[in-house]
């Protein structure tokens, strides 16, 4: 699909990594380049040229990325075609892992759960926008306080978050069912009933991510010039019209960014399944995600090759989905 790739490259804002800062310096050095390494590296006045500094500065990060991210990705792709012994010693297995994964009877349900969870997680976006807009109205010192309060779930350990919510969700003694009982509703076993567990986890996922999204939307709102609203008011536009005609279009780059990040993190959903449901739970069979299957294969069954195959499939799906998102954004994202 050649059509997508230019869209990805064209649509994405320039990466804000340190590499881009070094690029102009390197280009300048290239223009003045002469034969001889020493003369290329060291300028006439005896100081190393600017581009050398540039590369030296990015070296720690670039080497770290290459060693701890890029190389493992290459290795994972290779290992996905092998079968592992529990203590090393891989054997070439061709496409066997991929075949076994794609014919795993658990896959359709897990894939659906993963998609469902990601879609539910997208509901955090309108909620976050509303909260961000409200926060934008607050003046004075309390802004910092509210921002911190909403951000606490983001910096909390997922394990701690899961523990607390597991307790809140308890079917017999949980706070949620207690509150429901006050209005005469007999609440279900949220995290041990297959019909509710995915939704219960999604609610926690939304709760946990609102703070992060809100900060991004709050920054986006700050970037909308005040006089647009003044002009709209003069033209007789009401609050609702202002929101849909000014706020939403001008916030669309932030919305786009958040939706991409949300889909990526949603498809990687794993921690709440393990921590809120646990390994022995009647709801588990109905609530497994793709990443949880990966965990089971690798850490419980010692099938590392299979785990790599799942990781590769998940990565490809994520890349395709992100490419589609970048392609669609042309229709609705407005860069002011």
């Amino acid at each position: 699909m050649p059509a997508t790739e230019p869209a990805v490259a064209g649509g994405s804002p320039p990466p804000a990594s340190p590499t881009s800062a070094a690029a102009p310096a390197a280009a300048g050095a290239r223009a003045a380049g002469r034969p001889g390494l020493a003369r290329r590296v060291v300028a006439r006045h005896g100081h190393p040229r600017e581009w050398v500094w540039g590369y030296l500065m990015v070296a720690p990060l670039a080497l770290g990325l290459a060693g701890f991210y890029l190389w493992p990705i290459v290795q994972s792709v290779y290992y996905s075609f092998t079968s592992w012994g529990a203590f090393g010693g891989q054997q070439w297995a061709g496409l066997a892992n991929y075949r076994a994964f794609l014919s795993d009877p658990q896959l359709p349900k897990a894939a659906w759960n993963t998609v469902l969870y990601s879609l539910l997680l997208l509901a955090s976006i309108p909620v976050s926008i509303v909260f961000a807009a409200l926060l934008n109205q607050v003046r004075g010192r309390s802004v910092g306080l509210y921002r911190t309060l909403y951000f606490i779930p983001v910096v909390s350990m997922p394990a701690a978050v899961a523990m607390v919510w597991r307790w809140l969700y308890n079917g017999d003694y949980g706070l949620i069912n207690y509150l429901l009982s006050l209005i005469g509703i007999h609440g279900p076993h949220w995290v041990s009933d297959g019909r509710f567990a995915v939704y219960a986890m999604a609610l926690v996922g939304i709760w946990a991510v609102i703070g992060y999204n809100m900060i991004i939307f709050a920054a986006g709102l700050k970037g909308i010039p005040r006089h647009y609203y003044e002009a709209a008011e003069l033209d007789g536009a009401g609050r609702v019209r202002q929101f849909f005609s000014i706020t939403l279009p001008l916030l669309s780059p932030s919305i786009f960014f958040v939706s991409v990040i949300t889909v990526i993190s949603g498809l990687q959903m794993f921690d709440y399944v393990l921590l809120m449901l646990g390994r022995s739970n009647p709801a588990l069979a109905d609530s497994k995600t793709i990443a949880y299957l990966f965990y089971e294969y690798v850490f419980l069954d010692n099938e590392q090759g299979m785990g790599c195959a799942i990781a590769v499939v998940l990565t490809v799906v994520l890349l395709l989905l992100t490419a589609v998102q970048f392609r669609l954004q042309k229709r609705w994202v407005h860069y002011a």
Binding site: R166, S192, A283
Partner: peptide, 8 residues
Amino acid sequence: TAQQMTDT
């Protein structure tokens, strides 16, 4: 039940 013993 199994669910009650999963929750607690």
